[in-house]
């Protein structure tokens, strides 16, 4: 199979190589690093916007990366149904680019949080989560200062009605409640998908727990899901 993935590199990206490595290790497919000045991505079926501090997070996280030349191509591919995954800073860029609704605000505790959290997989009905079970509790690391998801109540209802909240922060026991969000996210939201279900953004880092040597495998099914959606076998 000739499917390929592109991992976009912005000035300040720092999870780009982790994404390439995890994607290749899990899927056996090729992933290329693509500089943000690129204006055409014709041969890619899957695009990852990785974590990091694009443009130093100046103004707002992702606000300047949104004007990178590559973003118009990413938008075009999103419109054509290609799979787009934004992790952490990538999620922030996707909201700034209006490919996903809402915004990611300063953590309520004001601190940068770098630790493992538990998540509940809210839906397996997506090309990114088909290899998880509905309601499955997984463990992934977070690493962010601005991860508090915020959205107006009307649109929040729409998200819920359309089964578009993909991950919520949970306790180890799997309950989602007032205290389960480490950063103050509304309704403990950790990841959402667009209406067409081909653009996913999440704050936790699946690429950091996709190989046994790294102390966990809970990120692995996400890449396996993408592989299946692209028509391949793990």
């Amino acid at each position: 199979m000739t499917c390929k993935a592109a991992v976009i590199v912005f000035p300040g990206s720092n999870c780009d190589r982790d994404c390439v490595r995890s994607f290749e290790a899990v899927t056996g497919l090729k992933a290329n690093l693509v500089w943000h000045k690129e204006t055409s991505l014709p041969n890619y079926d899957f695009i990852i916007l990785p974590g990091g501090f694009s443009y130093g997070d100046y103004l707002r996280c992702g606000a300047i990366a949104r004007f990178s030349p590559v973003l118009s191509e990413v938008k075009r591919l999103a419109d054509r149904g290609r799979y787009i995954l934004g992790i952490c800073n990538g999620f922030q860029i996707l909201t700034e680019a209006r490919l996903l609704p809402g915004a990611l605000l300063r953590n309520h505790g004001l601190k940068y949080l770098c630790r493992d959290v538990y998540l509940r997989v809210e839906t397996s009905q997506s090309p990114f989560t088909s290899s998880y079970k509905n309601g499955q509790i997984i463990r992934l690391p977070i690493s962010h200062g601005e991860g508090s998801y915020s959205l107006n109540p009307r649109e929040l209802n729409t998200l819920n009605d359309q089964d578009r909240v993909v991950f919520r922060y949970a306790s180890a026991g799997g309950t989602v409640g007032e205290t389960s969000s480490p950063n103050g996210s509304q309704e403990s939201i950790a990841g959402i998908i667009n209406r067409e279900r081909n653009v996913l953004g999440l704050m936790p880092h699946p690429e950091r727990l996709a190989e046994a040597d790294l102390g966990g495998l809970d990120g692995r099914p996400l890449f396996e899901s993408v592989l299946a959606a692209l028509g391949g076998q793990a």
Binding site: L59, A63, E96, A103, S150
Partner: peptide, 8 residues
């Protein structure tokens, strides 16, 4: 377009 994010 840039300085303020109308979402928040």
């Amino acid at each position: 377009d840039l300085l303020a994010n109308p979402n928040m």
